[in-house]
């Protein structure tokens, strides 16, 4: 019988360490498990619909893509689990301390964002600015993208760091990053104290989730989820894996935190071509 197969995107070499560790943990606890790494989320979503994998560790954009393809094909996508740290994130729009005072002041200014497919550093903050009246979208001439590792949906921190550096150098007038990186960039010294100011903050949104499609075998999925929820940050063996993956506890999946990204995709047409192509393939 084929093992329960997970798909994940290799955005960093540590992904191998992470899923090798999870594989050992799952198999030591009686779940026959394997994983496949993809170069980018589009190939992962495609493979998921082709039945190559049973569960996909999806970025929020990959979730929106999968959810839209499923709807169009009359199938059903479900978010079954996520990290505690995937819930209630925000992104911030940073300016230099002496820079624009309001969102309207950004008119005609250059806005540094992350990769074109980054929900946190591009799509969600641009949606926030657009919904508050600024004429802006990912392909707007005033938007300066930092397309580090396109296809990884912004999982790589590099695009956000480049956006902040461009802001500090004066190459752009605003930079969009996830809230956690604000503290991280300050602590690592990329951002000097007093240099930058938060101009706007997005509403809270959710990040990655484990996605399954209709027809996934119930028993291994139930076991997979039970083993995830059985991990404890208080135990050294599982804490090592949780620290690598950046969480303290697994949570049941929820999809309420993706509505803003869904609006952004509609407004900017971000997922359209890919979804149409996948639907055409059936």
């Amino acid at each position: 019988m084929r093992p329960f197969i997970l798909g994940a995107v290799a955005y960093d070499p540590k992904v191998v360490t992470i899923w090798d560790g999870f594989k050992l943990y799952f198999e030591a606890n009686g779940l026959s498990f394997d994983y496949v790494l993809f170069h980018n989320y589009e190939r992962q979503v495609e493979a998921h619909f082709a039945g190559v994998i049973d569960v996909a560790w999806n970025s929020p954009l990959a979730w929106v893509q999968a959810q839209r393809i499923a709807t169009r094909l009359g199938r059903r996508a479900q978010a079954v689990a996520m990290r505690d740290t995937d819930q209630d994130l925000t992104s911030v729009v940073l300016v230099r301390t002496e820079g624009p005072a309001t969102i309207a002041d950004l008119t005609g200014r250059r806005i540094g964002v992350g990769a074109m497919d980054s929900p946190q550093a591009t799509l969600l903050p641009l949606l926030q600015l657009a919904e508050r009246g600024l004429d802006v979208h990912p392909d707007h001439p005033n938007v300066v993208r930092h397309d580090v590792l396109v296809g990884k949906h912004g999982d790589h921190i590099g695009g956000e760091r480049e956006a902040v550096r461009a802001l500090l150098h004066g190459d752009v007038d605003a930079a969009c990053i996830i809230d956690g990186n604000l503290a991280a960039f300050t602590q690592e010294g990329t951002v000097r104290a007093g240099a930058l100011r938060v101009l706007a903050t997005t509403p809270a949104y959710d990040h990655c989730n484990f996605t399954v499609l209709d027809g996934t075998a119930t028993r291994p999925l139930t076991r997979f989820l039970a083993l995830l929820h059985g991990m404890s940050w208080g135990e050294a063996d599982t804490r090592r894996l949780m620290d690598l993956e950046g969480l303290k506890a697994w949570r049941p999946g929820r999809t309420t935190g993706y509505s803003a990204l869904d609006r952004a995709c509609t407004r900017f047409g971000t997922a359209d071509a890919f979804v149409a192509q996948q639907v055409a393939r059936g």
């Binding site: 505690d84 740290t85 819930q87 209630d88 994130l89 925000t90 911030v92 996830i178 809230d179 956690g180 604000l182 503290a183 100011r197 938060v198 101009l199 903050t201 809270a204 940050w233 303290k248 506890a249």
Partner: peptide, 19 residues
């Protein structure tokens, strides 16, 4: 400080603390 909320939100998330 305008970055109070996003910074503390990220801190709480990292600590696993309700926010």
């Amino acid at each position: 400080d305008a970055s109070l909320v996003p910074t503390l939100r990220a801190l709480a998330r990292a600590l696993g603390a309700p926010f």
